[in-house]
Design a protein around this nucleic acid. Structure first.
Lengths: 161, 161
DNA sequence: CAAGATTAATGCAGTAGTGCATGGTTTGTT
DNA sequence: AACAAACCATGCACTACTGCATTAATCTTG
């Protein structure tokens, strides 16, 4: 190992704290919503927001569950009015699961609150040296790589406009 | 509002992506462990790591569940060998829940993996300008404030040594 | 068209998590 | 000593999540 370990540890330590803060924030932005949506359910909604209408099998694949689980997950979300099944003519076996307006709104609201919290959190920090700050963070995000859909929330925003 | 909104949005956007990356990383660092521990169970273990041995009521309070739920949560964790009940002489009503070595190790392993992922993620970035980077992040962590126990993992590390 | 593959739903079965109400033990307070 | 309070466990009831095996409908392909 090299001698950078000391400062590297500082960085990693800071990131760990940051990670904890973020995870808590993300959890709260969902829990504070009075809607009674579980985490697996929310994940399902997010898949639909980012990937668009999906068949049950695709949904199951994306969530790494069996299709029977996906089927029943959709039942619950349908019961809550957050998604809808839609038959399509070209393949009458497949059931296309789509978001309802309520489902879109819910994910949007969670995202909005998340952005709000983060914005408040950053606040003055961004005021003082915003660009360097953004650059640092973006470099980090890029380093994180493997975020398959780093812009998915952006896509959602444009879709809502 | 001021005209900084554009750059602020960049910052918030970067943070959102970062948050997603972190949440995913945190989830994976638990899921990749072959141990069959659920999120609520892990939360319980974390409370015990950070707060030390707890009575059922305190645990329930901390997790914001009823004590019956806490009781049964402990049953499950006892069955998995991750915590143990310990009667104490000074109050024979109370059952003190303590971590076993296996429980400590599990939390430690999750933390280790998390640190490892983050370290790998930062890597070269920290190499080039480590101190400025750490400073930025620490400022952000400080801004996040309200992390009640930002150093809890540190405490754990020293406790293990 | 017939055989096989794909897709979704359902019955069955199990664990996890949750709260409410109840009972039992122990402690604390008159 | 009697009564109240604290603490835990348990019975009961319910929802969510999960997979496996099966069935039914619908393509697809030979």
């Amino acid at each position: 190992m090299l001698e950078q370990t000391a400062s590297e540890d500082q960085v990693v330590g800071a990131l760990l704290s940051l990670s904890r803060a973020f995870v808590g924030l993300a959890a709260r932005s969902l829990a504070d919503l009075d809607e009674d949506v579980t985490l697996p359910q929310y994940r399902t909604l997010v898949v639909l927001v980012s990937r668009g209408p999906q068949r049950i099998v695709d949904l199951a694949q994306e969530l790494t569950v069996t299709s029977s689980t996906a089927t029943r997950m959709c039942n619950r979300l349908v019961r809550k009015g957050l998604v809808a099944r839609q038959e399509r003519p070209d393949d009458r076996r497949a059931a296309w699961v789509t978001l309802t307006a309520a489902g879109r709104d819910l994910v949007g609201e969670v995202m909005r609150r998340r952005r709000e919290s983060l914005a408040g959190l950053v606040g003055e920090l961004a005021m003082t040296r915003p660009l360097a700050f953004a650059a640092t963070l973006n470099a980090l995000v890029e380093a994180a790589g493997e975020i398959p859909d780093a812009q998915w929330w952006q896509r959602w925003e444009t879709a809502v406009d």
